[in-house]
Structures are given as structure tokens and as C-alpha cells.
């Protein structure tokens, strides 16, 4: 991790149940996930494979992004029964996806007791303009971003964790890299600005000024940031870690590959030892077929999921 995330938890005697206190608990779980891999799973059996591989959490969803892409149609929150089966099968945290802006899906996921909600562009958006007001929920949220403005808008709505979007279900890491580099470059730019310049920049990127100022001062996003969308190999995962993310989501990359359990373990080792090319070489050996993948450069704009979200 390029930059450490300063501790901002409450000290002294904050009131129980105050909004500040609740946000500390939400971001706290994200901090516990750092240096780990969160894996997409569609049933209890896959969840157990992920847990056994060393995933620090699983994302329960009905279809992995590669299948959503292939099958088309409207992609929605998963059946609560399936999510509950996954929650019963593993002891690590379980996340689940809701459609952008669909706050009732979020209420349902909170009622089931999932540990994190991903308000995700991988599902079909439910609102053309609004995201969910996330501060009102007790369960924490993770949201996607392609750039700094998008990240800070989500944090201001209450996201306790961010992931760069990449292009889900492709196995092509180029968009994950693009979004991570974009966020990094914009933060570097903001860090060199005066308050007056930051006000203009905040307007340009559609970010709240105070959050932008805090980010500029920290030199990194003020919450935990994972990479997502196109990670398919241990090398991809280590690449994202070296670019400065705090951990990695792997979606279709694992269960669309030849030997899911082996690849999953290898990606977990790669995220811990991301700075050690010898370990990366060892774990990259003999993993079998990677997911076939889609070349993002050859895709139509309308087929990309990353543009969803406002």
C-alpha cells in the first residue's frame, strides 16, 4: 500500500449511537479487510471454497458479472434465501449487491444481516439520478468509482469503503488500472493546490469541498479503497496493490477459471506478498486456464458497466 490510512477513530468519550461513532464502526470493518481478497460467489459451495482459499470476505450474488454480461436482462439483488445460505456456510463477512439507488433492496439486505452492501453498477441501476442515502443505514456500504469526484460523492452519501470500478466480468485489467491511476493522479493534483484552487477543482469534479480538502491533505482517499473489475491473475492482483489500493475484489476471475480453488489461493498469497516477485512467480505457476475474458478495447460503450452511477 503506497500510503497509509491515518487512524480517525473516535477517542475520548463520544456518545454511543452518534453518527460519528457509527461511521467509525462502519469504516472499521473495511480496515479489517485490508490486505485481503473479496471473492464473488453464487452459492454456499463456492463460498466455502473461497473461505478455504483465504478470502477475507465473500460477495454473494446470483450470477457473476461475466454471466450477467452474457445473459443480459435486468440484473437485480439476489434471492435472500441464497444469501442466507451463504451466510450460514461461512464465518467470514458476507457482502451482497443492491442496484444503484434501490434503497429498498438495501433495507432488505440489512434485514437479512449482511455485513456490507455493495451499491453496484454490475446490477442494472434502479434510479437515473440518485444513489442511496447510505448514512441512514446501520450496515456499511461499499461503492464503485472511476475517478476522484465519483469516489468523494459516494463517501459524502455515506459509503464507508470505495472500490475502483474497472470493467467487471471481462478479465481485462486495463480499466481497473485506468481508474486507480486516475484517482491517484487527481489526488496528487489536488495535494498541490491552494484552498482557492481546490474550490474550483471541487466544482469541476463534482466533489464536496471539505472532503476534497481532507483527501488532498491525506494524499489518499479518506476511506479504504479496493481494486475491482477485471482482476484475473495473481499478477493482476499484485499490480493493483502496487498501484496503491488496499485490497482486491475478484469477481468472475476465480470461478470462471479452470482450477478455481488453486487460483483463489494464489491470488490471496499474491495480495499479501505483493512486493515480492519471487513469491508472485511461485504462486503464478501451473494455475491452469485463466478466464477467457473480453478485450475491453473491442467493446461497445453501451456494453460497459462502469458508466452506470452518477
Amino acid at each position: 500500500m503506497a500510503t497509509e490510512l491515518p487512524i480517525n477513530g473516535g477517542s475520548g468519550i463520544a456518545q454511543n449511537g452518534s453518527p460519528e461513532s457509527s461511521f467509525t464502526v462502519k469504516t472499521g470493518l473495511a480496515r479489517m479487510l485490508k490486505g485481503g481478497v473479496i471473492m464473488d460467489v453464487v452459492n454456499a459451495e463456492q463460498a466455502k471454497i473461497a473461505e478455504e482459499a483465504g478470502a477475507c470476505a465473500v460477495m454473494a450474488l446470483e450470477r457473476v458479472p461475466a454471466d450477467i454480461r452474457a445473459q443480459g436482462g435486468v440484473a437485480r439483488m439476489s434471492d435472500p434465501k441464497m444469501i442466507k445460505e451463504i451466510m450460514a456456510a461461512v464465518t467470514i463477512p458476507v457482502m451482497a449487491k443492491a442496484r444503484i439507488g434501490h434503497f429498498v433492496e438495501c433495507q432488505i439486505l440489512e434485514a437479512i444481516g449482511v455485513d456490507y452492501i455493495d451499491e453496484s453498477e454490475v446490477l442494472t441501476p434502479a434510479d437515473h439520478a440518485h444513489h442511496v442515502e447510505k448514512h441512514n443505514f446501520g450496515v456499511p456500504f461499499v461503492c464503485g468509482c472511476r475517478n476522484l469526484g465519483e469516489a468523494l460523492r459516494r463517501i459524502s452519501e455515506g459509503a464507508a469503503m470505495i472500490r475502483t470500478k474497472g470493467e467487471a466480468g471481462t478479465g481485462d485489467v486495463i480499466e481497473a488500472v485506468r481508474h486507480m491511476r486516475t484517482v491517484n493522479a487527481e489526488i496528487a493534483k489536488a495535494s498541490a493546490m491552494s484552498d482557492a484552487e481546490l474550490r474550483i477543482f471541487a466544482k469541476e469534479i463534482g466533489a464536496p469541498f471539505e472532503l476534497l480538502k481532507e483527501t488532498a491533505k491525506l494524499g489518499r482517499l479518506p476511506v479504504v479503497n479496493f481494486a475491482a473489475g477485471g482482476v484475473a491473475t495473481p499478477a493482476d492482483a499484485a499490480l493493483m496493490m502496487q498501484l496503491g489500493c488496499d485490497g482486491v475484489f475478484v469477481g468472475s476471475g476465480i470461478f470462471k477459471s479452470g482450477d478455481a480453488a488453486k487460483r483463489a489461493k494464489a491470488i490471496v498469497q499474491a495480495v499479501t506478498h505483493y512486493k515480492d516477485p519471487k513469491v508472485l512467480a511461485a504462486v503464478s505457476e501451473d494455475l491452469g486456464e485463466a478466464m477467457v475474458g473480453l478485450n475491453v478495447g473491442l467493446m461497445d460503450a453501451k456494453d460497459k458497466m462502469q458508466g452506470r452511477g452518477w
Binding site: M32, L33, K34, G54, C56, I92, V268, Q269, H273
Partner: peptide
């Protein structure tokens, strides 16, 4: 530190 004990335990074993 804090984190996922399952993950740490498995990664420790494999490392």
C-alpha cells in the same frame, strides 16, 4: 492485528 483470523491463519500456513 485485527483482520480475518481465518485468512491470517491460512496465509500464515502457506507462507
Amino acid at each position: 492485528p485485527g483482520g480475518e483470523s481465518t485468512t491470517m491463519s491460512l496465509v500464515a500456513q502457506r507462507s
